[in-house]
């Protein structure tokens, strides 16, 4: 049963990432919906560990790229080197050729380097030397950025933020989780022991299951009402794009699957809305609202149809 498999994944991840069930489930949902994930938080709350664990649990090839301000696109996508024996340029794939790429501190790289990654995310292939190299299947990017750091960073523009299905933050663990963390085993050793929870082919069947989660007419009515309100309603300067709408539906489907259901309910949409729409919406009065506050503003303005 896909629902059970998905749940198994969540449980395995939560054994390492303590007290962050919601963030873990959102991250998993993002992956199951085949979306890229942006984690925005201060250092040391487990962003990198989360990416690691997901890669291990899902049994994916993992590559970490530390973004710096002197980074060039070639450092990400790879470089063509002249091979003297063959008398021709030969492409050396960069770290992006991996199933799960962790792009650490993505906002520290220049826009040029950033856009190289973002292009790869969108196209799921790399063009170099007049040829295209497809990226591995599946392909995920989990990017992190530190919102507190301002100097020497290049904030991602909206158009590029839009490439991420979700933007989440981790936050501090609660005291009980923190205590377990302090008293418990070293996370890095635990991480090394984590075994993939998936048999070969199971991930594909999970993707298929997500796509088949039923979204009935009433749910679509509700989704459209949300979209319409984000575009026309007072309170929002920038609404959700059609891509935003698709992202919302895909994420809600994955969330429903994780909740063990075969159909989407309004609660699923509401649950993923902060993560999916938080970085796509802008409040009308340019109020500095958090993603949760923005999402709440939208949710509470739209009645369920019927």
């Amino acid at each position: 049963m896909p629902q059970q498999i998905a749940n198994r994944l969540a449980e395995a991840t939560c054994r390492i990432i303590l007290g962050k069930e919601r963030a873990v489930r959102l991250a998993l949902a993002c992956v199951l919906a085949r979306g890229h994930l942006l984690i925005e938080d201060i250092p040391g709350v487990g962003k990198t560990t989360l990416a690691h664990v997901l890669a291990r649990v899902l049994g994916l090839q993992f590559q970490r790229i530390q973004f710096t301000s002197d980074m060039l696109p070639a450092d990400i996508v790879g470089v063509s080197v002249f091979d003297q024996r063959e008398g021709a340029f030969r492409f050396h794939p960069g770290p992006v050729f991996s199933q799960l790429v962790l792009a650490d501190e993505i906002n520290r790289a220049t826009p040029k380097a950033q856009s190289a990654l973002l292009e790869a995310m969108e196209e799921r292939q790399i063009s170099a030397e007049g040829r295209t190299w497809p990226l591995p299947e599946p392909f995920f990017v989990i990017a992190t950025q530190n919102p507190a750091e301002q100097i020497g960073t290049f904030a991602l523009p909206e158009s590029q933020l839009d490439r991420f299905l979700m933007r989440i933050s981790m936050g501090y663990p609660d005291p009980a989780a923190e205590r377990a963390l302090l008293a418990g085993e070293d996370r890095r050793e635990m991480l090394a022991r984590v075994q993939p929870e998936l048999q070969p082919g199971e991930l594909d069947s999970l993707f298929a299951a997500v796509r088949q989660v039923h979204a009935g007419p009433r749910l679509l009515d509700y989704l459209q009402a949300l979209l319409a309100h984000s575009r026309q309603g007072a309170g929002f300067a920038l609404g959700l794009s059609p891509r935003g709408g698709l992202a919302l539906l895909a994420a809600a489907r994955a969330w429903a699957l994780l909740a063990g259901r075969d159909h989407v309910q309004p609660e699923d949409v509401q649950a993923v809305l902060p993560a999916v729409a938080g970085h796509r919406l802008r409040a009308a009065d340019d109020a500095p609202l958090t993603a949760d506050q923005l999402a709440r503003r939208l949710i509470e303005a739209v009645a369920l149809p019927g």
Partner: peptide, 9 residues
């Protein structure tokens, strides 16, 4: 029930 509240919530 709030108008926006889903049944299970």
């Amino acid at each position: 029930r709030a108008a926006w509240e889903g049944p299970q919530d």
